[in-house]
């Protein structure tokens, strides 16, 4: 414990559990694409494994009167299904598996991150960007597939005079393009900031304990760290919910462009 570095960003470090190899490049150090099974990958696998085990094993008995696990699996299902149905309508239920996958992946990955010494998958920008890009590309591709060129009406709010359109449309385009940015940065920033704050308070505790008589005061940052942990659990669930709700809102735009 004492050997652990207490710098707050150490927890985000990616370590290679075993190497797969380097592809491309010219053989020199740092060139080419290096692939490895990392701790991040381990926790992605754990996340997916936990979700699927929870849902499939929980509902395996197919009981009419559910047991505890089955009830939880069904409540999760109903929660996401209601979210999708409320936001996108019955028509949007074809995206229910996507939204459920995104929601549960983010939720479980965030909650995994709340365990000490566990790696937080969603604290890495590349992961949240990919999550957001999945949504963005789904919206764009499905929007054009379903509506054709009419999908461009998503940039033109209805019922505004023509001379304002020239101002509004660029803003709408910009806001549309910034969606994946904000979508990914929101999740990443919340998770990252929360974990850094936790580690900063944790570091204060360690530093104060090492300072002899001042160690008594370490109860203050320790209490703060406990409170922040509670808040971060809330934020972990909240950001997963927000991610899923925003996904639904964007999908709604894909199905009904033109506000």
């Amino acid at each position: 414990m004492a050997e652990q570095p207490i710098e707050p960003i150490h927890q985000f470090r990616i370590t290679n559990l075993f190497d797969i190899g380097t592809f491309g490049g010219n053989g020199t150090e740092g060139s080419g694409t290096h692939l490895a099974f990392t701790n991040s990958a381990l926790f992605m696998v754990l996340t997916v494994g936990l979700i699927l085990a929870f849902l499939i094993l929980g509902s395996n008995r197919r009981a009419i009167i559910p047991g505890r696990m089955q009830l939880m699996a069904e409540m999760t299902y109903e929660f996401v299904a209601n979210m999708v149905r409320d936001t996108t309508g019955t028509e949007g239920m074809k995206f229910f598996p996507l939204v459920a996958s995104l929601f549960l992946f983010v939720l479980v990955a965030n909650l995994f991150g709340m365990f000490p010494y566990f790696f937080t998958v969603t604290s890495h920008l590349i992961v949240t960007v990919m999550l957001a890009l999945i949504v963005f590309l789904t919206v764009v591709i499905y929007g054009f597939y379903k509506n054709g060129p009419r999908f461009l009406k998503v940039f033109v709010p209805s019922g505004i005079p023509w001379y304002i359109i020239w101002i509004v449309v660029p803003i709408e385009v910009l806001s549309f393009l910034s969606r994946p940015v904000s979508h990914s940065l929101r999740l990443w920033g919340n998770v990252l900031a929360g974990h850094i704050v936790l580690k900063v308070f944790g570091g204060m505790v360690v530093a104060l304990l090492a300072a002899g008589a001042w160690g008594v005061v370490s109860i203050l940052p320790f209490g703060m760290a406990v409170a922040m942990t509670g808040l971060e659990v809330l934020v972990a669930a909240l950001q997963a919910f927000v991610f899923a709700v925003l996904t639904c809102v964007y999908l709604h735009d894909a199905m009904h462009p033109g506000h």
């Binding site: 099974f37 991040s40 990958a41 997916v48």
Partner: peptide, 20 residues
């Protein structure tokens, strides 16, 4: 680290989506 994360994210999320 992006390539590894990209790869494993794609694999795990694809598995998750398909099985879900």
């Amino acid at each position: 680290t992006f390539a590894s994360q990209f790869l494993w994210f794609a694999i795990t999320f694809a598995v998750l989506y398909v099985v879900m």
